[in-house]
Amino acid sequence: MECKGFLFDLDGTLVDSLPAVERSWINWALSWGANPQEVLAFIHGKQAITSLRHFMAGASEEKIQEEFDKLEKIEATDTEGVTALPGAHLILSELSRMNIPWAIVTSGSMPVASARHKAANLPEPEVFITAEQVKHGKPKPDAYLLGAEHLGLAPEDCVVVEDAAAGVMAGLAAGCKVIAVNAPSDTPGIEDVDFDLSSLKDLLLNPSDNGVTVSLR
């Protein structure tokens, strides 16, 4: 597979933030009277405000925003256990070395995403797309279309790297090539991704006339 740029999801793709995510959302679920397991099953890959609107159906937008502000503050300060996933540092460093443009495209807000990115000590992206920059979050394609635009590339020249069902669907909807990493086996469209991997360590990158060739080790 050949491409000219990469668009990486953050949580679950480059960064293992699951302990922090689960702590924050379980505490929120218990405080609101929601089922913690139902909340955890729903939230992955989606913007926090989308999840809150889902579980706070009937509440005012003002109340939802109030809960979002409290949750964001907690998530942006709780980075205990947040680490880079295997292969993340290597692939980002290799792309930078080869002058291949790459971006982080996350459903998280800037305060939360930047805190987790910093905690994992990942290289700085050329482009960092967060929830504040798009009207419609994943699984809509908006975030990945914006990421490609900011890299100066057509969506079809970009590879989306994702772990969550919502992100895989967003990448496919954007018209990008898609690499799934530890995505659920029942992810809609999983049969249409270019690679379905268990780890970023499985990827091999080589320069090509059109950017970079992506293959498996």
Rank of each mutant, 00 (worst) to 15 (best):
T79F: 12
D142G: 05
A148E: 04
P101E: 00
K73H: 14
E94F: 00
M98W: 06
I190E: 13
I104A: 13
V134C: 08
L122E: 00
A88M: 01
A165Y: 01
E72W: 08
P139L: 06
A166W: 07
A166I: 13
E149F: 11
E156M: 11
L92E: 00
L85E: 02
S96I: 00
L85S: 03
S107N: 02
P111Y: 07
D78W: 06
M110C: 15
L197C: 12
A103R: 05
Y144L: 01
T106A: 03
K73Q: 13
N99S: 15
H117T: 12
R116T: 02
V161H: 04
D142A: 02
W102M: 02
V82H: 05
R116M: 02
L146V: 10
L90V: 12
G87E: 01
M98Q: 12
A119V: 06
L71V: 06
D157F: 08
E126F: 01
P139Y: 02
K70E: 11
N121H: 11
P123G: 04
T106K: 00
V105D: 03
I129L: 02
H117N: 10
R116A: 01
I129C: 03
E67T: 09
L145I: 07
P141G: 03
G152W: 07
V160K: 03
P125R: 05
P101A: 02
P155W: 04
E132H: 10
M169F: 09
E80W: 14
S185I: 15
E75P: 10
C158W: 05
E80P: 14
A143F: 06
E191S: 15
R97N: 07
I100M: 00
T187P: 14
A115K: 04
I190V: 14
V105H: 08
E126G: 10
E156G: 12
K118P: 06
E191D: 15
K118C: 13
V193Y: 05
C176N: 11
A164I: 12
W102L: 03
A148T: 07
F128R: 04
M169Y: 10
V161G: 07
D194Y: 15
A119L: 04
A170D: 10
L146M: 09
V82L: 10
V181S: 14
A165Q: 12
F128G: 07
F195Q: 11
L153T: 05
A165L: 03
V134K: 06
V127Y: 02
R116G: 04
I179E: 10
P125W: 01
C158Y: 04
K177D: 03
F68C: 12
A180I: 11
S107C: 09
K118D: 11
I104P: 08
K73V: 13
G152T: 06
H117A: 14
I129T: 09
F195P: 14
P125F: 01
V193F: 07
D163V: 04
L92M: 05
V161C: 06
L172N: 12
K140A: 14
